[in-house]
């Protein structure tokens, strides 16, 4: 066998290995989703979504947890979005590119990889205890904001970096100030990428359990939150709670709630993909 044949063989071998790996990932996902659907789909109806939690599995619903997740999502967005985007703009456009900036950049990327329970501990200490917010929606949102800030900052910087420098040059050459260039050219051109990053970060936040448990989210709240200072539960915690119950009915409920949580994350990722495509086509 000469070297050309050898290379061709390697090429083929790697191709089939790659196909196997891809199929394995896909197969696991399909089995998982299929299993969940079989267990939970018949449990989903309007009553399930609008009912309060109960001791009887067939009567209990996800209303409080769903509303809790929506409240948390809302406040996390309005906290993390402006801070993260502003920090990203600063680092990319205003901050000097020196050694300190390099260290800062590495650390922000590292922060994105810190286990979420550590953010939970930080949130417990700073927001729940020192700021005395208690186990409230606000404390939970602030904690999750910390968790996703690095992701938002990195996404913002990447999208701003992707704006061709020729656009900036053109704007400056017409007498635009830095702020005008950022506001009228850079942000509109990078908004698709920034939005994608923010939505992906939020879809991660909506599935987070550990930091919220540490902050003190409850497995059972009788009412949906009505203000940012109220106690709350979220979907993942509700699911976790139901799975740990012995009755079979609760397992069904958990599966149904997982379907709804998955639906929310898929929707958010879908929106993110939509923005990304729309944004990319603009530059062609």
């Amino acid at each position: 066998m000469n070297s050309i044949q050898k290379n061709r063989l390697k090429d083929q071998a790697f191709k089939y290995w790659g196909i196997c790996c891809t199929c394995m990932g896909l197969a696991l996902l399909i089995i998982f989703i299929g299993d969940i659907l079989i267990d939970g789909i018949q449990r989903i109806d309007w009553g399930f979504i609008t009912s309060l939690p109960s001791r009887k599995p067939e009567k209990s619903g996800i209303y409080t947890a769903l509303m809790g997740s929506i409240w948390i999502l809302f406040f996390t967005t309005i906290i993390a979005f402006p801070i993260g985007v502003a920090a990203g703009i600063y680092l990319e456009e205003y901050g000097k590119k020196n050694k300190l900036a390099g260290i800062l950049e590495i650390n922000i990327s590292n922060l994105a990889g810190v286990p979420s329970i550590i953010y939970g501990l930080l949130g417990l200490e700073v927001f729940v205890r020192i700021m005395n917010l208690g186990a409230s929606v606000l404390a939970g949102s602030l904690t999750l904001s910390l968790l996703i800030l690095p992701i938002v900052i990195v996404a913002t910087r990447e999208s701003i970096k992707a704006v061709p420098s020729s656009i900036k040059d053109a704007s400056y050459a017409l007498g635009a100030s830095k702020w005008q260039t950022i506001w009228y050219q850079i942000l509109p051109a990078s908004s698709g990428g920034i939005l994608t990053g923010v939505i992906l970060a939020l879809s991660r936040a909506v599935g987070e359990t550990a930091p919220l448990i540490v902050v003190g989210a409850l497995a059972y709240v009788p009412f949906a939150p009505e203000s940012p200072m109220d106690e709350f539960s979220v979907l993942p915690i509700q699911i976790f709670n139901w799975i740990s119950r012995p009755q079979h009915g609760f397992i069904e409920n958990a599966a149904a709630a997982i379907i709804i949580l998955l639906f929310i994350t898929f929707m958010m990722n879908g929106i993110a993909v939509y923005f990304r495509n729309k944004w990319q086509s603009k530059w062609k």
């Binding site: 040059d169 053109a170 050459a173």
Partner: peptide, 11 residues
């Protein structure tokens, strides 16, 4: 004013 090498209209 300045005109650049590659046409660079704003999107």
């Amino acid at each position: 004013g300045m005109v650049f090498q590659k046409p660079n209209p704003f999107p």
